[in-house]
Write a protein that binds this DNA or RNA. Structure first.
Lengths: 165, 165
DNA sequence: TATTGTTATACTCTATAACTATA
DNA sequence: TATAGTTATAGAGTATAACAATA
Protein backbone atom coordinates (compact mmCIF):
# COMPACT_ATOMS: atom_id res chain seq x y z
CA UNK A 1 0.00 0.00 0.00
CA UNK A 2 1.51 3.37 -0.92
CA UNK A 3 1.60 6.33 1.46
CA UNK A 4 -1.46 7.96 0.02
CA UNK A 5 -3.55 4.80 0.15
CA UNK A 6 -2.45 4.19 3.73
CA UNK A 7 -3.44 7.72 4.70
CA UNK A 8 -6.81 7.20 3.08
CA UNK A 9 -7.32 3.94 4.95
CA UNK A 10 -6.33 5.54 8.26
CA UNK A 11 -8.74 8.39 7.66
CA UNK A 12 -11.55 5.97 6.94
CA UNK A 13 -10.69 4.01 10.09
CA UNK A 14 -10.74 7.18 12.18
CA UNK A 15 -14.14 8.14 10.79
CA UNK A 16 -15.58 4.68 11.44
CA UNK A 17 -14.20 4.76 14.95
CA UNK A 18 -15.73 8.17 15.61
CA UNK A 19 -19.16 7.08 14.40
CA UNK A 20 -19.05 4.03 16.61
CA UNK A 21 -17.89 6.05 19.63
CA UNK A 22 -20.75 8.47 19.05
CA UNK A 23 -23.30 5.68 18.70
CA UNK A 24 -22.16 3.94 21.89
CA UNK A 25 -22.27 7.13 23.90
CA UNK A 26 -25.69 8.10 22.55
CA UNK A 27 -27.15 4.69 23.35
CA UNK A 28 -25.93 4.69 26.94
CA UNK A 29 -26.62 8.38 27.51
CA UNK A 30 -30.16 8.11 26.23
CA UNK A 31 -30.86 5.14 28.48
CA UNK A 32 -29.42 6.98 31.48
CA UNK A 33 -31.40 10.18 30.78
CA UNK A 34 -34.64 8.25 30.36
CA UNK A 35 -34.10 6.25 33.52
CA UNK A 36 -33.13 9.29 35.59
CA UNK A 37 -36.30 11.03 34.46
CA UNK A 38 -38.65 8.08 34.89
CA UNK A 39 -37.27 6.66 38.10
CA UNK A 40 -35.94 9.73 39.89
CA UNK A 41 -37.61 12.68 38.15
CA UNK A 42 -34.26 14.32 37.51
CA UNK A 43 -31.88 15.09 34.65
CA UNK A 44 -28.32 14.20 33.72
CA UNK A 45 -26.83 17.64 34.50
CA UNK A 46 -28.50 17.61 37.92
CA UNK A 47 -27.13 14.11 38.55
CA UNK A 48 -23.72 15.21 37.28
CA UNK A 49 -23.61 18.23 39.59
CA UNK A 50 -24.51 16.09 42.59
CA UNK A 51 -21.91 13.49 41.56
CA UNK A 52 -19.23 16.19 41.50
CA UNK A 53 -20.22 17.31 44.99
CA UNK A 54 -20.28 13.74 46.30
CA UNK A 55 -16.61 13.46 45.34
CA UNK A 56 -15.80 16.79 47.01
CA UNK A 57 -17.30 16.73 50.52
CA UNK A 58 -15.68 20.05 51.37
CA UNK A 59 -17.76 21.63 48.61
CA UNK A 60 -16.95 23.23 45.27
CA UNK A 61 -17.09 26.79 44.04
CA UNK A 62 -19.42 27.62 41.19
CA UNK A 63 -16.60 28.16 38.73
CA UNK A 64 -15.01 24.84 39.69
CA UNK A 65 -18.35 23.09 39.12
CA UNK A 66 -18.58 24.86 35.79
CA UNK A 67 -15.13 23.63 34.78
CA UNK A 68 -15.69 20.04 35.88
CA UNK A 69 -19.11 19.82 34.25
CA UNK A 70 -17.76 21.41 31.08
CA UNK A 71 -20.59 23.95 30.85
CA UNK A 72 -20.68 27.72 31.23
CA UNK A 73 -21.42 29.44 34.53
CA UNK A 74 -24.97 30.54 33.89
CA UNK A 75 -26.11 26.96 33.60
CA UNK A 76 -24.53 25.97 36.90
CA UNK A 77 -26.39 28.80 38.60
CA UNK A 78 -29.70 27.51 37.24
CA UNK A 79 -29.14 23.89 38.22
CA UNK A 80 -27.84 24.88 41.65
CA UNK A 81 -30.91 27.07 42.21
CA UNK A 82 -33.16 24.09 41.47
CA UNK A 83 -31.28 21.78 43.81
CA UNK A 84 -31.19 24.40 46.57
CA UNK A 85 -34.97 24.83 46.24
CA UNK A 86 -35.31 21.07 46.76
CA UNK A 87 -32.94 21.13 49.74
CA UNK A 88 -30.47 18.79 48.02
CA UNK A 89 -27.52 21.21 48.01
CA UNK A 90 -26.53 24.35 49.94
CA UNK A 91 -24.50 27.45 49.17
CA UNK A 92 -21.97 28.27 51.91
CA UNK A 93 -20.17 31.58 52.01
CA UNK A 94 -16.38 31.48 51.64
CA UNK A 95 -14.10 33.04 54.26
CA UNK A 96 -12.18 35.90 52.77
CA UNK A 97 -13.98 36.14 49.41
CA UNK A 98 -17.45 37.52 49.58
CA UNK A 99 -18.02 36.96 45.86
CA UNK A 100 -17.73 33.19 46.03
CA UNK A 101 -19.74 30.27 47.43
CA UNK A 102 -18.93 26.70 48.27
CA UNK A 103 -21.72 24.41 47.11
CA UNK A 104 -22.21 21.25 49.16
CA UNK A 105 -24.65 18.35 49.29
CA UNK A 106 -27.09 18.46 52.18
CA UNK A 107 -27.77 15.28 54.16
CA UNK A 108 -30.91 14.86 52.07
CA UNK A 109 -28.83 15.38 48.93
CA UNK A 110 -26.35 12.71 49.96
CA UNK A 111 -29.16 10.26 50.64
CA UNK A 112 -30.88 11.06 47.36
CA UNK A 113 -27.64 10.75 45.43
CA UNK A 114 -26.82 7.42 47.04
CA UNK A 115 -30.10 5.98 45.72
CA UNK A 116 -29.54 7.33 42.25
CA UNK A 117 -25.89 6.30 42.14
CA UNK A 118 -26.76 2.71 42.99
CA UNK A 119 -29.28 2.51 40.16
CA UNK A 120 -26.91 4.35 37.82
CA UNK A 121 -24.17 1.87 38.57
CA UNK A 122 -26.53 -0.92 37.61
CA UNK A 123 -27.32 0.66 34.23
CA UNK A 124 -23.65 1.22 33.47
CA UNK A 125 -22.65 -2.27 34.50
CA UNK A 126 -25.33 -3.58 32.16
CA UNK A 127 -24.00 -1.50 29.31
CA UNK A 128 -20.38 -2.60 29.73
CA UNK A 129 -21.01 -5.90 31.44
CA UNK A 130 -20.01 -8.09 28.53
CA UNK A 131 -16.46 -6.82 28.63
CA UNK A 132 -13.81 -8.53 30.72
CA UNK A 133 -11.83 -6.51 33.25
CA UNK A 134 -8.94 -6.64 30.82
CA UNK A 135 -11.05 -5.34 27.94
CA UNK A 136 -12.34 -2.50 30.10
CA UNK A 137 -8.78 -1.60 31.04
CA UNK A 138 -7.72 -1.61 27.40
CA UNK A 139 -10.62 0.60 26.39
CA UNK A 140 -9.95 2.95 29.28
CA UNK A 141 -6.30 3.27 28.34
CA UNK A 142 -6.87 3.85 24.63
CA UNK A 143 -9.66 6.35 25.32
CA UNK A 144 -7.29 8.12 27.68
CA UNK A 145 -5.06 8.85 24.72
CA UNK A 146 -8.03 10.01 22.66
CA UNK A 147 -8.99 12.31 25.52
CA UNK A 148 -5.55 13.89 25.59
CA UNK A 149 -5.48 14.41 21.85
CA UNK A 150 -9.06 15.55 21.50
CA UNK A 151 -8.69 18.17 24.21
CA UNK A 152 -6.13 19.92 22.03
CA UNK A 153 -8.01 19.86 18.70
CA UNK A 154 -7.28 22.92 16.65
CA UNK A 155 -10.07 23.79 14.31
CA UNK A 156 -8.42 24.31 10.97
CA UNK A 157 -10.07 27.00 8.90
CA UNK A 158 -11.74 25.58 5.85
CA UNK A 159 -9.86 27.92 3.53
CA UNK A 160 -6.45 27.19 4.96
CA UNK A 161 -7.14 23.47 4.97
CA UNK A 162 -7.75 23.62 1.25
CA UNK A 163 -4.70 25.78 0.67
CA UNK A 164 -2.39 23.77 2.91
CA UNK A 165 0.70 22.48 1.07
CA UNK B 1 -9.90 -11.02 45.94
CA UNK B 2 -13.27 -12.52 46.91
CA UNK B 3 -16.30 -12.48 44.64
CA UNK B 4 -17.84 -9.43 46.24
CA UNK B 5 -14.66 -7.39 46.07
CA UNK B 6 -14.18 -8.38 42.45
CA UNK B 7 -17.72 -7.30 41.63
CA UNK B 8 -17.10 -3.98 43.32
CA UNK B 9 -13.88 -3.46 41.38
CA UNK B 10 -15.61 -4.33 38.09
CA UNK B 11 -18.40 -1.89 38.83
CA UNK B 12 -15.91 0.86 39.54
CA UNK B 13 -14.06 0.06 36.34
CA UNK B 14 -17.29 0.21 34.33
CA UNK B 15 -18.15 3.60 35.82
CA UNK B 16 -14.67 4.98 35.11
CA UNK B 17 -14.88 3.68 31.57
CA UNK B 18 -18.27 5.29 31.05
CA UNK B 19 -17.09 8.67 32.31
CA UNK B 20 -14.10 8.56 30.01
CA UNK B 21 -16.22 7.52 27.03
CA UNK B 22 -18.58 10.39 27.73
CA UNK B 23 -15.74 12.90 28.06
CA UNK B 24 -14.09 11.80 24.82
CA UNK B 25 -17.34 12.02 22.89
CA UNK B 26 -18.21 15.42 24.34
CA UNK B 27 -14.79 16.84 23.49
CA UNK B 28 -14.91 15.71 19.88
CA UNK B 29 -18.60 16.46 19.42
CA UNK B 30 -18.27 19.98 20.77
CA UNK B 31 -15.32 20.70 18.48
CA UNK B 32 -17.25 19.36 15.49
CA UNK B 33 -20.41 21.34 16.31
CA UNK B 34 -18.44 24.55 16.78
CA UNK B 35 -16.49 24.09 13.58
CA UNK B 36 -19.58 23.21 11.54
CA UNK B 37 -21.27 26.36 12.80
CA UNK B 38 -18.32 28.70 12.37
CA UNK B 39 -16.97 27.40 9.09
CA UNK B 40 -20.09 26.16 7.33
CA UNK B 41 -22.98 27.80 9.18
CA UNK B 42 -24.62 24.43 9.75
CA UNK B 43 -25.36 21.96 12.54
CA UNK B 44 -24.47 18.37 13.36
CA UNK B 45 -27.95 16.92 12.62
CA UNK B 46 -27.96 18.69 9.25
CA UNK B 47 -24.51 17.31 8.50
CA UNK B 48 -25.59 13.89 9.69
CA UNK B 49 -28.66 13.86 7.44
CA UNK B 50 -26.57 14.84 4.43
CA UNK B 51 -23.99 12.19 5.31
CA UNK B 52 -26.71 9.53 5.35
CA UNK B 53 -27.87 10.65 1.90
CA UNK B 54 -24.34 10.72 0.53
CA UNK B 55 -24.06 7.02 1.36
CA UNK B 56 -27.44 6.29 -0.28
CA UNK B 57 -27.41 7.91 -3.73
CA UNK B 58 -30.76 6.35 -4.57
CA UNK B 59 -32.28 8.35 -1.70
CA UNK B 60 -33.82 7.43 1.63
CA UNK B 61 -37.37 7.56 2.93
CA UNK B 62 -38.11 9.81 5.87
CA UNK B 63 -38.63 6.90 8.24
CA UNK B 64 -35.34 5.32 7.18
CA UNK B 65 -33.54 8.62 7.82
CA UNK B 66 -35.25 8.75 11.18
CA UNK B 67 -34.03 5.25 12.06
CA UNK B 68 -30.47 5.82 10.91
CA UNK B 69 -30.17 9.18 12.65
CA UNK B 70 -31.71 7.74 15.82
CA UNK B 71 -34.21 10.58 16.16
CA UNK B 72 -37.98 10.70 15.85
CA UNK B 73 -39.77 11.57 12.64
CA UNK B 74 -40.82 15.12 13.41
CA UNK B 75 -37.22 16.21 13.66
CA UNK B 76 -36.32 14.74 10.30
CA UNK B 77 -39.18 16.68 8.72
CA UNK B 78 -37.83 19.93 10.16
CA UNK B 79 -34.23 19.37 9.09
CA UNK B 80 -35.31 18.21 5.64
CA UNK B 81 -37.48 21.32 5.24
CA UNK B 82 -34.48 23.52 5.99
CA UNK B 83 -32.23 21.70 3.54
CA UNK B 84 -34.91 21.71 0.84
CA UNK B 85 -35.30 25.49 1.30
CA UNK B 86 -31.55 25.84 0.71
CA UNK B 87 -31.68 23.56 -2.35
CA UNK B 88 -29.34 21.02 -0.75
CA UNK B 89 -31.77 18.07 -0.79
CA UNK B 90 -34.95 17.19 -2.69
CA UNK B 91 -38.05 15.15 -1.94
CA UNK B 92 -38.93 12.74 -4.77
CA UNK B 93 -42.26 10.95 -4.87
CA UNK B 94 -42.19 7.17 -4.66
CA UNK B 95 -43.82 5.00 -7.32
CA UNK B 96 -46.70 3.08 -5.86
CA UNK B 97 -46.85 4.75 -2.45
CA UNK B 98 -48.17 8.27 -2.48
CA UNK B 99 -47.56 8.67 1.26
CA UNK B 100 -43.79 8.32 1.02
CA UNK B 101 -40.87 10.35 -0.33
CA UNK B 102 -37.34 9.54 -1.25
CA UNK B 103 -35.00 12.27 -0.03
CA UNK B 104 -31.87 12.82 -2.12
CA UNK B 105 -28.96 15.23 -2.21
CA UNK B 106 -29.11 17.76 -5.02
CA UNK B 107 -25.97 18.50 -7.05
CA UNK B 108 -25.48 21.57 -4.85
CA UNK B 109 -25.96 19.39 -1.79
CA UNK B 110 -23.34 16.91 -2.95
CA UNK B 111 -20.86 19.73 -3.58
CA UNK B 112 -21.59 21.35 -0.24
CA UNK B 113 -21.29 18.05 1.58
CA UNK B 114 -17.99 17.25 -0.13
CA UNK B 115 -16.49 20.46 1.28
CA UNK B 116 -17.79 19.81 4.76
CA UNK B 117 -16.80 16.15 4.73
CA UNK B 118 -13.22 17.01 3.85
CA UNK B 119 -12.93 19.43 6.76
CA UNK B 120 -14.77 17.00 9.04
CA UNK B 121 -12.34 14.23 8.16
CA UNK B 122 -9.50 16.53 9.15
CA UNK B 123 -11.00 17.24 12.56
CA UNK B 124 -11.61 13.56 13.24
CA UNK B 125 -8.15 12.52 12.10
CA UNK B 126 -6.76 15.12 14.48
CA UNK B 127 -8.81 13.73 17.34
CA UNK B 128 -7.77 10.11 16.78
CA UNK B 129 -4.50 10.73 15.01
CA UNK B 130 -2.26 9.61 17.86
CA UNK B 131 -3.59 6.08 17.68
CA UNK B 132 -1.99 3.46 15.48
CA UNK B 133 -4.10 1.59 12.96
CA UNK B 134 -3.97 -1.38 15.32
CA UNK B 135 -5.16 0.67 18.28
CA UNK B 136 -8.02 2.06 16.22
CA UNK B 137 -9.01 -1.45 15.21
CA UNK B 138 -8.92 -2.60 18.83
CA UNK B 139 -11.07 0.32 19.96
CA UNK B 140 -13.49 -0.25 17.11
CA UNK B 141 -13.86 -3.92 17.96
CA UNK B 142 -14.34 -3.42 21.70
CA UNK B 143 -16.79 -0.57 21.14
CA UNK B 144 -18.67 -2.87 18.78
CA UNK B 145 -19.36 -5.16 21.71
CA UNK B 146 -20.42 -2.21 23.85
CA UNK B 147 -22.77 -1.14 21.08
CA UNK B 148 -24.40 -4.56 20.97
CA UNK B 149 -24.82 -4.71 24.72
CA UNK B 150 -25.92 -1.11 25.18
CA UNK B 151 -28.60 -1.38 22.51
CA UNK B 152 -30.35 -3.97 24.69
CA UNK B 153 -30.16 -2.18 28.05
CA UNK B 154 -33.16 -2.91 30.19
CA UNK B 155 -33.90 -0.18 32.63
CA UNK B 156 -34.32 -1.90 35.93
CA UNK B 157 -36.89 -0.29 38.17
CA UNK B 158 -35.31 1.23 41.23
CA UNK B 159 -37.52 -0.78 43.57
CA UNK B 160 -36.94 -4.13 41.94
CA UNK B 161 -33.21 -3.53 41.78
CA UNK B 162 -33.15 -3.12 45.52
CA UNK B 163 -35.35 -6.17 46.05
CA UNK B 164 -33.51 -8.43 43.63
CA UNK B 165 -32.20 -11.61 45.28
C1' DT C 1 -9.04 46.03 36.00
C1' DA C 2 -10.05 41.29 36.78
C1' DT C 3 -12.86 37.81 38.82
C1' DT C 4 -17.16 35.53 40.83
C1' DG C 5 -21.46 34.73 40.10
C1' DT C 6 -26.21 36.00 38.29
C1' DT C 7 -29.64 37.34 34.97
C1' DA C 8 -31.76 37.49 30.57
C1' DT C 9 -32.16 35.63 26.29
C1' DA C 10 -31.93 32.83 22.21
C1' DC C 11 -31.08 28.81 19.82
C1' DT C 12 -30.31 23.82 19.03
C1' DC C 13 -31.94 19.43 19.78
C1' DT C 14 -35.21 16.19 20.98
C1' DA C 15 -39.58 13.69 22.25
C1' DT C 16 -44.56 13.36 22.41
C1' DA C 17 -48.95 13.47 20.63
C1' DA C 18 -52.50 14.81 17.59
C1' DC C 19 -53.27 15.10 12.87
C1' DT C 20 -53.76 14.17 7.48
C1' DA C 21 -53.37 11.30 3.74
C1' DT C 22 -52.76 6.98 1.91
C1' DA C 23 -52.23 1.87 2.15
C1' DT D 1 -56.46 -0.56 10.97
C1' DA D 2 -51.81 0.43 10.04
C1' DT D 3 -48.28 3.24 8.03
C1' DA D 4 -45.79 7.63 6.12
C1' DG D 5 -45.16 11.90 7.09
C1' DT D 6 -46.38 16.57 9.18
C1' DT D 7 -47.54 19.88 12.65
C1' DA D 8 -47.54 21.84 17.13
C1' DT D 9 -45.67 22.07 21.41
C1' DA D 10 -42.87 21.53 25.46
C1' DG D 11 -38.79 20.90 27.71
C1' DA D 12 -33.73 19.90 28.22
C1' DG D 13 -29.47 21.67 27.41
C1' DT D 14 -26.35 25.02 26.13
C1' DA D 15 -23.92 29.47 24.92
C1' DT D 16 -23.54 34.44 24.86
C1' DA D 17 -23.50 38.82 26.73
C1' DA D 18 -24.64 42.34 29.92
C1' DC D 19 -24.62 43.05 34.69
C1' DA D 20 -23.57 43.60 40.00
C1' DA D 21 -20.58 42.90 43.64
C1' DT D 22 -16.18 42.19 45.21
C1' DA D 23 -11.15 41.52 44.74
Amino acid sequence: MDIEARAHADHAAALRLWLRLLTCTQLVERAVRTALREQFDTTLPRFDLMAQLERAPQGLKMNELSRRMMVTGGNVTGITDQLVAEDLVERHSVEGDRRAFLVRLTAAGRASFADMAQAHEGWIVQAFGDLSAKDMATLHKLLGRVKETASTIELTEAASALQAP
